[in-house]
């Protein structure tokens, strides 16, 4: 009887304790940056967690995703996903949308049910500097130009990280576009695609170059560029 009353007291106390911690837990999740999705990758980009754009078929993808959900559940990380059909009338999956702490991931399939692209979104949009510090510095910075907009990518082997696009800083007198405070720019998404590597951008800079303002002459793009106007390679 005495033991029972102690047990009841203990349970009651623990319940109180956990309910009191709820707000703190929520704050942690709201500020979480999902670098673990990159640092714990089990294969080389553009392959991600065993899913390879251009190779992995839908049945294989389903198996991998289910395993991923199970593996992370064992680590205490909840992953949920939804399959988005191509349309109500066609029995085909257009993409899988997965929610993970601090992130959402789209795995997009092509018309023959092979993975075409993976988008990993950092919901709490870190700055470029934070991203490089917590993951790693990119191999270089690739820029595609479109209507004076500089689409800047952090280029890694097999992956690229898109940054947020802001209004262009164009000087009509010199005809130059300037990119200021690049390290404070925000990360938009990690993009993994089945495209050949060694693509050429309109402009390429070293990571260190971006520490200061860089100037771009839009009439002097790389002649071997694979940038297609507003679409990136």
């Amino acid at each position: 009887m005495k033991k029972l009353s102690i047990l009841i007291l203990l349970t009651f106390g623990l319940l109180l304790l956990f309910s009191g911690c709820k707000n703190e837990q929520l704050d942690i999740e709201q500020n979480l940056q999902p670098y673990y999705l990159l640092t714990e990758n089990t294969c080389s980009f553009p392959c991600w967690m065993g899913i390879t754009p251009g190779e992995t078929s839908y049945p294989e993808l389903k198996e991998i995703i289910d395993q991923l959900v199970q593996d992370y559940a064992e680590k205490g990380v909840a992953i949920t996903y939804i399959e988005e059909p191509f349309s109500k009338h066609i029995d085909q999956i257009l993409y899988i949308y997965a929610e993970m702490p601090g992130s959402e991931v789209y795995i997009i399939l092509d018309s023959i049910n092979i993975v075409k692209e993976i988008k990993i979104i950092f919901l709490n949009t870190p700055t470029v500097a934070e991203f490089a510090e917590n993951y790693k510095a990119p191999d270089n910075i690739g820029i595609c130009m479109a209507h004076r907009y500089a689409h800047t990518n952090l280029v890694y082997d097999g992956a690229r990280v898109l940054t947020k696009k802001e209004l262009p800083n164009y000087d009509a007198e010199t005809g130059l576009i300037s990119i200021e405070d690049f390290y404070l720019n925000r990360v938009d998404e990690v993009q993994l695609r089945a495209v050949p590597q060694n693509k050429h951008y309109d402009f390429t800079f070293d990571w260190e170059d971006m520490a200061q303002t860089v100037f771009i002459d839009i009439n002097n793009t790389d002649p071997n560029s694979d940038c297609l106007g507003r679409f990136q390679p």
Binding site: K2, S5, I6, L9, L10, G13, L14, L16, L17, G20, C21, N23, E24, D27
Partner: peptide, 26 residues
């Protein structure tokens, strides 16, 4: 016969203390 009252009291106090200090107040 063991007197459990002090144990209960200590338990309640310990839990209350951890409740107040273990969590960041919203």
């Amino acid at each position: 016969k063991t007197n459990t009252k002090p144990i209960k009291l200590i338990l309640v106090l310990a839990l209350t203390f951890s409740l107040l200090n273990g969590c960041v107040k919203p």
